[in-house]
């Protein structure tokens, strides 16, 4: 099972689509590793630099509603994975992106808007880190000398996929 946690990258906009996460022109790459330099290349957001230190150090992404909408490209979870980002926490997800994350053994965690707002209140601290405990279904956020523990809902199937390491291994044993 993967581990989920570390420095957080805050992307403060709804409807971030998979073209912004990984532009189509890079879909000609044959290996996941080759996608590594292009993460979030086309995302235009105040204060966000796709090549910046904060982006490169991030292990968790926090964002708003309908994250990962648009194209079905699994290259979006993959480009996060090869940049060591294994969890995205958002107010809601587009279906295909959400399923792709769990299918890869990664985590797409939904929290209500007020909890997402609370996480965003940590965006200004340079030392903010977030850890996701899948088994206990809890998020630990720490930064600026304070911290919180936030429980989250997770469908038993998605939890089983994360624990199994993804859908191929799970399905291969079962079907």
């Amino acid at each position: 099972m993967k581990t989920f946690g570390g420095p957080a990258l805050f992307l403060d906009r709804a409807d971030i689509n998979t073209d912004e996460i990984i532009p189509a022109k890079y879909l000609n790459e044959i290996t996941k590793q080759d996608l590594q330099p292009y993460m979030l290349e086309d995302l235009k957001l105040a204060g966000f630099d796709p090549q910046g230190e904060k982006t490169r150090e991030a292990r968790v992404v926090v964002s708003r509603a309908n994250f990962g909408c648009g194209s079905s490209r699994e290259h979006a979870p993959w480009v996060f994975e090869v940049n060591d980002i294994t969890a995205v926490i958002a107010e809601s997800f587009a279906r295909i992106f959400r399923q792709n994350m769990f299918n890869c053994g990664m985590a797409a965690i939904e929290l209500p808007k007020e909890k997402i707002d609370l996480l965003f209140s940590y965006a200004g601290y340079p030392d903010t880190s977030i850890f996701v405990d899948i088994a206990a279904q809890k998020i630990n956020v720490n930064g600026g000398g304070k911290g919180e523990v936030l429980p989250f809902e997770l469908s038993p199937f998605d939890k089983a996929l994360v624990l199994a390491g993804g859908w191929v291994d799970y399905a291969d044993q079962k079907y």
Binding site: N100, N103, W167, A171
Partner: peptide, 20 residues
């Protein structure tokens, strides 16, 4: 339904797909 590559891979191998 549109799916990602992992769902496609399992579809190719097993002929099944999981949905909510």
């Amino acid at each position: 339904a549109g799916v990602g590559t992992t769902d496609l891979e399992v579809g190719i191998l097993k002929g099944v797909c999981a949905f909510r």
